[in-house]
């Protein structure tokens, strides 16, 4: 029995909800629009919403002056690298815990999650000194290692919640039908595990892309990903709104689009399967 909704009510809800939604989205929209203005128009009062001379100069200048593309590649390398290495370590662990749980599995999972609770500042000093002495400071390798370690508990948890939903009966049935171990893995397990692994990959790339404690503290010019690159606009260049906007738009656009596709996985993944 579907509830009857009056047309007026539906329109009223639509208008209110869209007004609030646009308000929440507005800073992003404004940044996007400002990136096409000249510096003069960007600070003009009253500001113009759409009626200005659209220009691509800011994008050109950001790329020329500060080599946006290099920082973009750093972000890609670090976020993708740390996620893939994390997955290689985590898949067997999550697999074993999901399919051969022991009495201690639950405690082990909780302990792994608790390592996430350790504040980064608690280990900032030694990590910084170790990195300085081993030449890992301002290197993509060093940052990839750190991000792998801080993401590992979440990757394991996410994979665990996905793997747990694979019915073990199917495995047993395959075995009874005389499937070899190879066939079991390739034709039965892998197709069921791939969606979970893909979701985990997507979500962790997003988290790693936006990580902004270690990336700010452990990089300088060479290995700085986009988070640190944007931080260099904090002053006084931040006062050039149009260029700040162009740099910001380029830094968030790729991950924003990825994020839109990952809404469902985001909820599942970040709540460890508690909310679906």
């Amino acid at each position: 029995m579907a509830r009857r909704v009056t047309r007026t009510r539906k329109w009223a809800v639509t208008i209110i909800a869209w007004a609030i939604g646009i308000l929440i989205f507005f800073p992003i929209l404004w940044t996007f629009l400002t990136s096409f203005k000249t510096e003069g128009e960007a600070v003009a009062m009253p500001p113009s919403l759409l009626l200005f001379d659209w220009t691509l100069d800011n994008y050109r200048e950001v790329q020329q002056r500060s080599d946006y593309f290099m920082h973009f590649l750093n972000s890609v390398t670090i976020s993708l690298g740390s996620t893939v290495i994390g997955l290689i370590i985590a898949v067997p662990a999550a697999w074993a815990m999901a399919f051969q749980p022991t009495k201690r599995t639950k405690d082990l999972l909780m302990w792994m999650l608790s390592t996430k609770m350790m504040p980064a500042v608690g280990v900032l000093v030694p990590i910084y000194l170790i990195f300085r002495d081993t030449g890992l400071l301002d290197s993509r390798l060093g940052l990839t290692i750190i991000l792998t370690l801080i993401d590992l508990p979440i990757i394991i948890w996410m994979l665990y919640t996905y793997f747990k939903e694979i019915p073990t009966e199917i495995l047993e049935a395959a075995r009874m039908d005389g499937a070899s171990l190879y066939n079991e893995i390739v034709h039965v397990l892998t197709p069921m595990a791939v969606p979970g692994i893909a979701s985990t990959l997507l979500l962790n790339v997003i988290l790693a892309w936006n990580e902004a404690f270690w990336t700010l503290n452990l990089t300088a010019a060479q290995a700085a990903p986009l988070t640190a690159f944007i931080a260099s606009y904090s002053s006084p260049e931040g006062l050039f709104y149009a260029k700040l906007s162009a740099a910001s738009t380029m830094a968030i656009a790729p991950i924003l689009i990825l994020g839109w596709f990952s809404q469902k996985q985001l909820v599942r993944g970040l709540t460890f399967g508690a909310v679906k």
Partner: peptide, 25 residues
């Protein structure tokens, strides 16, 4: 579409969010 608009700020990296708010707002 509205859901997409509302979820978007979560994907904005902290440094961008902070600088945009600080300077432009």
């Amino acid at each position: 579409i509205l859901r997409i608009l509302v979820i978007s700020p979560f994907f904005v990296m902290p440094t961008v969010a902070a600088l945009v708010w600080k300077n432009m707002f």
